[in-house]
């Protein structure tokens, strides 16, 4: 936010309430405005039953009435409401609430603009799927290293974080001419936020109890949005969505298909590539990130990419593939 415009973040009695969109002559809208006006003026009593419960043109009555709180409902009522006390006011849009909260915490000297900006810069400019892609390309070309990532010794189940740290610290990113990772950007952690307890899994043929299976892995977090941020940056909105969180555990094949259909965009050969891949799957493993462990997928390398350099491979690996939601298309 531009610090020169603090008035936008700090609703006060001298500034008007936030814009409420188009005017609709409904009771819901009246409630909303009454609430905001009441709060803005510091007169919360305006939001009482007496004020809003009076139907226009009704017979005068002395009887006390109970009013349904449909202030947030769009389907004719909100039965799951807090029915005690005055009706709950409707708050401004979420962005305004966030900026107001930030302003309050800054005023109380609990946070500061510079550190906030440092956090934002880390996620916008430094960390991102390019780090995970570097790991995947390196693993593809170094099977021994990949095996160490995939099958850690029992006494060090999360040794992958240390292996990845060594790799990222000692490998120059061709795009920047600097190492992928430097100590100042780990925040005192091994590779960065949510990067300690990394469990690496791979898509493709693998042997299990003597039989060979084609395994595909899908990463999710059904209750929140846990994510290997140190390798992939911030979660994309689809990963955080209730839609994905709900369906990923129960209908993983449906998820793959939905991503594939969106990725086709009229490219018929992509449809064929996906179908060929999906037909191979013997086992689809969904990883629900319900502890502090974070899962990271090494996708299957498309056959036509054999012979490409590590740097060429790196540029072809997508974020969605490192979560298992999508396959890599040639």
């Amino acid at each position: 936010m531009d610090p020169k415009q603090p008035d936008q973040t700090s609703p006060s009695s001298s500034s008007p309430p936030p814009a409420q969109g188009k005017t609709r002559p409904s009771r819901r809208h009246f409630l909303r405005n009454a609430s905001l006006a009441g709060l803005t003026a510091g007169a919360t009593t305006l939001v009482g039953r007496e004020t809003v419960g009076e139907p226009v043109g009704a017979e005068p009555t002395t009887k006390q009435t109970v009013v349904a709180d449909d202030s947030r409902a769009s389907h004719g009522g909100a039965p799951i409401a807090d029915t005690h006390g005055p009706l709950e006011p409707v708050l401004p849009p979420i962005k305004e609430r966030v900026l107001a909260l930030k302003q309050l915490l800054i005023e109380k000297n609990l946070i500061d603009e510079k550190t906030i900006q440092g956090f934002v810069d880390y996620y916008e400019q430094f960390v991102g799927p390019h780090l995970g892609a570097a790991v995947v390309a390196h693993a593809w070309l170094n099977p021994d290293w990949q095996a160490e990532l995939l099958a850690p010794p029992e006494e060090r189940p999360f040794q992958a974080a240390q292996l990845i740290r060594d790799f990222l610290f000692n490998t120059v990113n061709p795009a920047s001419g600097k190492p992928y990772l430097v100590p100042q950007l780990t925040f005192g952690l091994t590779i960065g936020p949510e990067g300690e307890f990394i469990r690496v899994v791979a898509n493709g043929q693998q042997t299990q109890d003597g039989s060979t299976l084609f395994v595909h892995n899908l990463v999710t977090c059904t209750v929140c949005s846990c994510y290997p941020q140190a390798l992939l940056g911030t979660q994309p909105m689809w990963y955080k969505s209730q839609q994905y969180r709900a369906r990923s555990v129960a209908d993983p094949f449906g998820i793959l298909l939905e991503f594939a259909e969106d990725a086709h965009q009229g490219k018929a050969d992509r449809r064929a590539q996906f179908q060929a891949y999906a037909d191979k799957i013997d086992e689809l493993r969904v990883w629900d990130s319900n502890s502090e462990v974070r899962f990271f997928v090494i996708p299957e390398m498309p056959k036509p990419w054999a012979g490409l350099s590590e740097n060429e491979l790196r540029q072809r690996i997508t974020r969605n593939a490192m979560l298992g939601a999508e396959i890599l298309y040639v």
Binding site: M1, K95, V98, L99, L101, K102, L105, L110, I111, T115, I116, F119, V120, Y123, E124, G128, P129, G233, T234, P236, M237, W238, S241, Q243, Y244, R247, I255, E258, F259, D262, T318, R319, N320
Partner: peptide, 27 residues
């Protein structure tokens, strides 16, 4: 599922989302 096409380089749909994350991390 919404926003499946969010570009890889886009950290947030809107900039203030990053500030919200920062507020939680700092607190």
């Amino acid at each position: 599922i919404p926003h499946k096409d969010q570009p890889e380089g886009q950290a947030w749909l809107e900039g203030w989302e990053g500030e919200l994350g920062a507020i939680f991390a700092l607190m």
